[in-house]
């Protein structure tokens, strides 16, 4: 069951539903009654992307069509833009990134919803990180409120590789951002982070699956989120340590703030361990902002709304600070502030 399969066959019964364990909180089957027609190619101007100024080169994919341009840089900084300009239509896109052994690449990925109509977008990504290579992926997702997006990234790491990822999203009508990592152990390092800031009726699902297949691997995961109004945030993290993958060190954290009585957060942090010499842990907290902290701020003359935004910004800030690429980190910081209604001078 997948969106890709449903798009290919036009058969809605192929869509994942609540009855599929991995999709229990992101029901597509109940939402989509018919598979829309294919999005037409859009040849007009799509404006500048959020990361254009930081990149050495860019790849622009509009409604699933790759725009002609210079070849993507293999090292340095690549801006990868997925632009959706649909009008109740659907499209598919695929892209693969390979980092050669010993090389370093930063991928600044953006999902941009444009126009007025909703769309159904399915994006498949493949990342292959060679021996000793480094790849940092920063994903900024700004979908339209009535969009349905599923993005699935498969990541293969070679021994000694390093992959770091930070996803920042404001959600959509339904949105699933999934990352699956094949971790060979062998001193490869993995960091998987995420931030979701959701309001109104938006939904975001950050799902990860890390499979440790060999000795000496590390994984560090930190996801933080805020939901307001009737929004729904979903976090599903699964760490599998296969037999023999000893000396694995895996940590997973998910922490969320619920700002309204109609908002919802669902979490499933899973550890499946088949090896004994490991150190794995996960932590999960869900709650409201500390009223005492708000009171403290108000006492000092900060209006309540601003105090709430400030505290939330500090809460998710921990994830932003883990971004290694300096200009991208600043951009992410500003993005968070903007979405929380504060402007950084």
């Amino acid at each position: 069951m997948s969106l890709a399969l449903a798009l290919k066959t036009g058969d809605v019964s192929r869509l994942p539903s609540r009855r599929d364990e991995d999709w229990r909180w992101t029901d597509l089957r109940g939402l989509i009654r018919t598979i829309p027609t294919e999005s037409p190619a859009f040849l007009g101007d799509v404006g500048a992307g959020p990361f254009d100024a930081l990149a050495d080169g860019s790849v622009v994919i509009v409604n699933g069509w790759v725009r002609e341009g210079d070849p993507a840089p293999e090292t340095g900084v690549l801006a990868l833009r997925f632009v959706s300009r649909g009008d109740a239509t659907a499209h598919d896109a695929e892209f693969a990134v390979t980092v050669a052994p010993g090389q370093t690449l930063t991928v600044l990925e953006s999902y941009e919803g444009q126009g007025a109509g909703g769309y159904l977008a399915n994006i498949g990504l493949d990342f292959s990180v060679g021996e000793g290579a480094r790849l940092e992926r920063i994903v900024l997702v700004d979908d339209l409120a009535d969009a349905v997006t599923v993005s699935t990234a498969d990541v293969a790491l070679a021994p000694g590789a390093r992959f770091a990822q930070t996803i920042l999203t404001t959600g959509a009508r339904r949105q699933r951002l999934e990352t699956r990592v094949a971790h060979p152990g062998a001193h490869a390092e993995l960091r998987l982070d995420g931030i979701y800031l959701l309001d109104k009726q938006r939904h975001a699902d950050l799902t990860t699956q890390v499979t440790h297949g060999g000795v000496d691997g590390t994984t560090s995961q930190l996801t933080k989120g805020m939901v307001d109004d009737q929004a729904r945030g979903v976090f599903q993290g699964r760490i599998i340590v296969q037999p023999g993958a000893d000396q694995t060190d895996a940590r997973m954290g998910h922490h969320a703030l619920i700002m309204s009585d109609k908002a919802e957060v669902d979490a499933k942090p899973e550890l499946l361990i088949f090896a004994d010499d490991v150190s794995c842990a996960h932590g999960n907290t869900i709650g409201a902002l500390d009223e005492q902290a708000i009171f403290y701020a108000r006492q000092r003359g900060i209006p309540e709304l601003e105090a709430r935004a400030m505290l939330t910004e500090a809460f998710v800030g921990e994830v932003v600070e883990r971004i290694e690429h300096e200009p991208a980190r600043q951009l992410a910081r500003a993005w968070v502030a903007q979405h929380l209604g504060r402007s950084i001078l």
Binding site: I258, D276, H282, G283, N284, T285, G287, A288
Partner: peptide, 13 residues
Amino acid sequence: GQSVFEHEATTTR
């Protein structure tokens, strides 16, 4: 929005 949930888990040998 007025509840608190805390969960922690560890696996070691």
